[in-house]
C-alpha cells in the first residue's frame, strides 16, 4: 500500500528533475497507476521505484507512459460520432478551411476515426487535424497509423453504428496481424507533443476534442485546461469531451450551449 506522502515525494521528483507536473492529477487514479507500476515492473518497495525514477532517465519514459492511461478505441461511443457526422460536420462544411484539435489523442484511433468522417463528408481535403499528447511514444504510434488486426471487429461495428456506410476494411491493409490505415487519411494530420498542464494555446480551432483526459485531472486543473480550450476556440466552434465529462463545474460554462445528449458544446459568444 502506497502512502499519500510517498506520492507527494514522487511527484515532486518528477517535477524538479524532469519538469513533468502531475500534482493536479486526480489522486485516486494516480495511486492505482503507481501501485500497478510497482507490480508489473516488480519493485520490491516504493523506495526502489523512486530511486529508479530519479536515477534512470530512460526508465522515466516508461514510467510516464504507464502513469497516464492510454486506453482508446476507434469510434468510441458511436452515437457521439454519429452526431459529429450528421450535425457538426455539415455546419463546418461551409468554411473554407477546417481546423481540428485532438488534445490527448493517445495512439491516434480517435484521429483516424475523425479523418474517416471527414473523408466521407468530402471535407478532408480542406481540413487539418492537430493531434497532441503529453507522451511522445503514443504519438509515434499514432503517426504510423498501424493498429492491431484483433481490434478491427469492434472498430468496424462501432463504425457501422456511427452511421458508416462503407466497407470498413477498405480503409486499411492487413498484414501479419496488424493493419495500416491508408496514407491518404494520415496526410492531413499533424502530430506534436503538447502538455495541457504547462503549454499554451497554439492556434484557433473550429472543433476541439479532449475525451477521457480531464477525468484524470482535479477540478482546478480541469478549469485551467477548459480556459485554454476556450481561448483556442473560434466563435461558434465546438468543444467535445468524453461521455462522462462535463462543463458544469467550469466558469466557461455560460458561454457554451450543449446541443444534445452527447458531450458536445457550441461556443455561443
Amino acid at each position: 500500500m502506497i502512502e499519500e506522502e510517498e506520492i507527494d515525494l514522487l511527484l515532486n521528483d518528477l517535477y524538479e528533475l524532469y519538469g513533468y507536473d502531475f500534482n493536479n492529477y486526480s489522486r485516486a487514479s494516480l495511486k492505482r497507476r503507481i501501485q500497478r507500476i510497482c507490480t508489473i515492473d516488480k519493485f520490491p518497495s516504493f523506495a526502489e521505484l523512486r530511486y529508479r525514477v530519479k536515477s534512470d532517465a530512460g526508465y522515466l519514459k516508461r514510467f510516464v507512459e504507464e502513469l497516464t492511461v492510454n486506453v482508446t478505441e476507434m469510434f468510441r461511443d458511436p452515437t457521439f460520432y454519429q452526431y459529429l457526422r450528421t450535425e457538426v460536420l455539415p455546419t463546418l462544411a461551409v468554411k473554407p478551411f477546417i481546423r481540428i484539435w485532438h488534445a490527448g489523442c493517445s495512439t491516434g484511433e480517435e484521429v483516424y476515426s475523425m479523418a474517416i468522417l471527414l473523408q466521407e463528408a468530402n471535407l478532408l481535403h480542406k481540413a487539418l487535424l492537430y493531434a497532441t499528447d503529453l507522451n511522445p511514444t503514443v504519438l509515434e504510434k499514432a503517426r504510423r497509423g498501424i493498429f492491431p488486426m484483433s481490434h478491427m471487429k469492434l472498430y468496424s461495428e462501432n463504425y457501422i453504428e456511427s452511421g458508416g456506410k462503407h466497407d470498413f476494411s477498405s480503409y486499411y491493409i492487413a498484414n501479419y496481424g496488424q493493419v495500416k490505415f491508408s496514407e491518404g487519411l494520415g496526410e492531413k494530420m499533424i502530430f506534436s507533443t503538447h502538455n495541457l498542464v504547462s503549454d499554451r494555446s497554439f492556434n484557433e480551432f473550429d472543433l476541439i476534442l479532449c475525451r477521457n483526459v480531464l477525468i484524470y485531472f482535479d477540478k482546478d486543473l480541469q478549469e485551467k485546461v477548459l480556459k485554454l480550450f476556450d481561448e483556442s476556440l473560434g466563435t461558434l466552434g465546438y468543444l467535445a469531451l468524453g461521455s462522462k465529462e462535463t462543463l458544469k463545474f467550469s466558469s466557461v460554462n455560460p458561454h457554451y450551449k450543449q446541443l444534445t445528449r452527447e458531450k458536445i458544446w457550441r461556443k455561443i459568444n
Binding site: 487514479s29 492511461v69 468524453g242
Partner: peptide
C-alpha cells in the same frame, strides 16, 4: 469506466 472515490465527498472516473 472504473468508479473511484477521490475523497469522502467526491467521485472520480477512470477509463483504464
Amino acid at each position: 469506466y472504473h468508479l473511484l472515490i477521490e475523497n469522502e465527498t467526491m467521485f472520480a472516473l477512470d477509463a483504464s
